[in-house]
Amino acid sequence: MLKIDKTAEGEKVTLTLEGRLDISAAPQLEAELKRAMEHTTELIFDLEKLDYISSAGLRVLLLAQKQMNKQGRMRLIHVGETVMETLEITGFVDIFFIVE
């Protein structure tokens, strides 16, 4: 189960993810992102309450990163220990801009 909370201020959108971002939740986030990224120059993922991220979830974040590279920037904030470990193992720490 994944809960997505979206707050937008002008061209800045924050998506707060809560729960598990796995293969069953990935399409839900992908659909949400499609809307969230329109006319957005700054995309922020708040991952404080994200417990788990699978490779399918990483792919969605990767696609968002690729899109945001064209139209602005993307950041991950409040990354928890478990998710951070996954990001380190998978090497995505080199791809995402993670705010400590």
């Binding site: 990767l62 380190e88 193992i89 998978t90 090497g91 995505f92 080199d94 791809i95």
Partner: peptide, 27 residues
């Protein structure tokens, strides 16, 4: 981006080998 390898030195126990990973290929 692969998992941590496991190495066993002769006569010892298997242990995780943790070092900095690179991003996945094609990402």
């Amino acid at each position: 981006g692969a998992e941590h390898p496991v190495l066993r030195r002769a006569g010892k126990r298997f242990e995780l080998q943790e070092y900095r990973h690179s991003p996945p290929v094609g990402a």
